[in-house]
């Protein structure tokens, strides 16, 4: 079944609010363990609680509108809207980014190697795969990572390990 953009957006809003609700409960759970005010009347727990209440209050009108949009009938022309594309290239790049950070952090893969592979992967994810682009991105990644690691280790004393 085709779903209209407005309903999709309303579902998105409700999803966001669900996440906010989880966050608010984390705030309240965390605030319960905080020490009682000692140096001034507010204490450590006041701000989390205030923000928790604030987030709930601000969520209400958004939730109200989203539910109303979900229940209302769509206008007849809604079906003509172009379908929403899934951002699959963005997902690929995000996956590459996660792998890159994990390789550096947990795998302790050398910086130059990890960066070259990452630039090649994400570059191809964005612009498409061809022999020429593979070579270009490998050179780009190699050049960039060599330059960065030279600057960081020799001048700025930052170590990637």
């Amino acid at each position: 079944m085709q779903i209209s953009r407005r309903k999709l957006r309303a579902l998105g809003d409700l999803g966001l609010l669900a996440a906010v609700a989880v966050g608010v409960s984390v705030l309240f759970i965390g605030a319960a363990d905080l020490p009682a005010p000692r140096f001034e009347p507010l204490g450590s727990a006041a701000m989390p609680k205030i923000l928790g209440v604030l987030l709930i209050l601000l969520s209400l009108p958004i939730a109200f509108r989203a539910i109303r949009n979900l229940l209302r009938r769509d206008p007849a022309d809604a079906k003509q809207e172009p379908p929403i594309q899934l951002p699959h290239r963005g997902v690929l790049v995000f996956g590459a980014l996660l792998a890159y950070a994990a390789a550096l952090d947990f795998g302790r893969v050398p910086f130059v190697l990890a960066t070259t592979v990452f630039v090649a992967l994400s570059g191809m994810a964005i612009s498409g795969i061809s022999v020429r682009s593979v070579l270009i991105y490998i050179f780009l990644g190699l050049g960039l990572s060599l330059a960065l690691s030279y600057i960081f280790t020799n001048f700025l004393y930052v170590r990637f390990a």
Binding site: V93, L97, Y100, A101, L104, T115, F118, V119, S122, G123, M124, A125, I126, S127, S133, I136, Y137, L140, G141, L144, S145, L148, F152, L156, V158, F160
Partner: peptide, 20 residues
């Protein structure tokens, strides 16, 4: 600049920068 290059390079800078 072709998007693939620009965005990949910026991503590397973001990782390096937030680490450093």
């Amino acid at each position: 600049i072709p998007k693939g290059m620009l965005l990949s390079v910026i991503l590397v800078f973001c990782v390096v920068g937030s680490y450093a």
